[in-house]
C-alpha cells in the first residue's frame, strides 16, 4: 500500500516539476500572443527602434535589446573565459596548496554573491571609474565587466572540476615520460578537461544572457544599437524589468514576447551543453 502511494506521489512530483516548463512557456506564450498577433514577428524584428505604446502603433523592435543582450554577454564571456580558465589552471596545477585553498574559498564566496549586490557594486564603484575614462559610465563595458565577475566563479569551478577529472594514470604517463609541465597540461590534462570547460563556459553564457539585475543597474538602459563599448545599452532582461511595472496592452505583451525570445536562446544553449556533455562521456 505504502509502496503504491510512494510511487504515485513520486511520479506526480516528478511530472509536476517537468510540466512546469510547459506551464511557464505556455503562460509566457499566451502573454505574448496579443503582441504576436497585433504587431507580428516581422515588425518585432525590423521596426528599427523600441518606442512602445499601449497599442500596436508604436515601434516594437526587439532587435536593439537582443543585440544589447548578445553584446553584453559576449563581452562578459570574452573577459571571464580566459580569466576563469587560467585562474583555475593556476590554482589546480601551479599554485602551492595554501593559495589553492584560499582561492577555492574566495571563488566559493564570489559564486554565492547575489547579482543585485554585484550590481550595486558596479553602479557605485565601477561605473564612476568607467565614467572617468569615458562618460557616461553605465555602459556596455561596465555591464560586461560586472557580468564577467558574476560568471567567473562558474567558469573557474567547472574548470577546476574538469581538471580534477583527469585520471592519475594519465598523469603518471606524463610524469614517467619526463614531460615538462606545459606538455603535461597539454597532453594529459587538457584533452580530458576540455569538454567540461566548454560546458562550464556555456553555463556561464547562459547565466549572463539571463541575468537581469546586473545589467539593469550597470548597463545604462538606453535602448538602441551600441556603437562603442562606452555606449549605454539595454538588454532583453532589463527591458522586462524596467517596463513591466507600467506597461499595458500590446506593450506588456511585447515584453512577454521578449521573455519568449530569452527562453529560446537559453533552450539552444542548454541543448548544446547537453550534447557536449554526452560527447565527452562517449
Amino acid at each position: 500500500m505504502n509502496d503504491i502511494a510512494l510511487a504515485a506521489g513520486a511520479r506526480a512530483a516528478a511530472f509536476c516539476a517537468a510540466s512546469l516548463l510547459l506551464l511557464i512557456t505556455g503562460f509566457v506564450f499566451v502573454g505574448s500572443l496579443p503582441a504576436l498577433q497585433n504587431i507580428g514577428t516581422f515588425r518585432m524584428a525590423t521596426d528599427g527602434a523600441w518606442l512602445p505604446t499601449h497599442d500596436a502603433s508604436g515601434s516594437f523592435s526587439l532587435a536593439p535589446a537582443l543585440v544589447g543582450s548578445l553584446a553584453v554577454t559576449a563581452g562578459a564571456v570574452l573577459i571571464a573565459a580566459p580569466l576563469g580558465v587560467l585562474a583555475a589552471v593556476c590554482a589546480g596545477c601551479v599554485a602551492p596548496r595554501g593559495i589553492r585553498r584560499a582561492f577555492t574559498l574566495l571563488i566559493g564566496v564570489m559564486a554565492g554573491l547575489p547579482s543585485v549586490v554585484l550590481g550595486l557594486w558596479g553602479l557605485t564603484v565601477l561605473a564612476p571609474i568607467v565614467a572617468s575614462v569615458h562618460p557616461p559610465g553605465p555602459s556596455l563595458l561596465a555591464a560586461s565587466i560586472v557580468l564577467a565577475l558574476m560568471i567567473v566563479p562558474t567558469v573557474a569551478i567547472a574548470t577546476g572540476a574538469a581538471l580534477g577529472a583527469a585520471p592519475d594514470s594519465t598523469l603518471n604517463a606524463a610524469r614517467a615520460c619526463g614531460l615538462s609541465g606545459l606538455a603535461t597540461f597539454r597532453l594529459a590534462l587538457w584533452p580530458i578537461a576540455k569538454a567540461g570547460v566548454i560546458v562550464g563556459l556555456l553555463l556561464g553564457t547562459m547565466r549572463a544572457v539571463g541575468e537581469t539585475m546586473v545589467v539593469v543597474m550597470v548597463s545604462g538602459n538606453v535602448p538602441g544599437f551600441p556603437t562603442s563599448v562606452f555606449d549605454p545599452v539595454r538588454t532583453l532582461t532589463a527591458n522586462i524589468a524596467l517596463e513591466m511595472g507600467y506597461a499595458m496592452g500590446d506593450h506588456r505583451s511585447a515584453l512577454f514576447a521578449s521573455g519568449l525570445v530569452l527562453t529560446g536562446v537559453v533552450l539552444v544553449l542548454v541543448l548544446l551543453s547537453r550534447r557536449i556533455g554526452w560527447a565527452a562521456h562517449a
Binding site: G178, S180, L187, P191, I192
Partner: peptide, 21 residues
C-alpha cells in the same frame, strides 16, 4: 634532473595509460 632521469629510465604501468591524444 628528474626530467632527464625519466627520459633515461622509462616506465610501463599495470594498466595501459596512453595520453588522451
Amino acid at each position: 634532473r628528474l626530467r632527464s632521469l625519466r627520459r633515461r629510465v622509462g616506465m610501463i604501468f599495470q594498466r595501459p595509460n596512453p595520453l588522451p591524444v
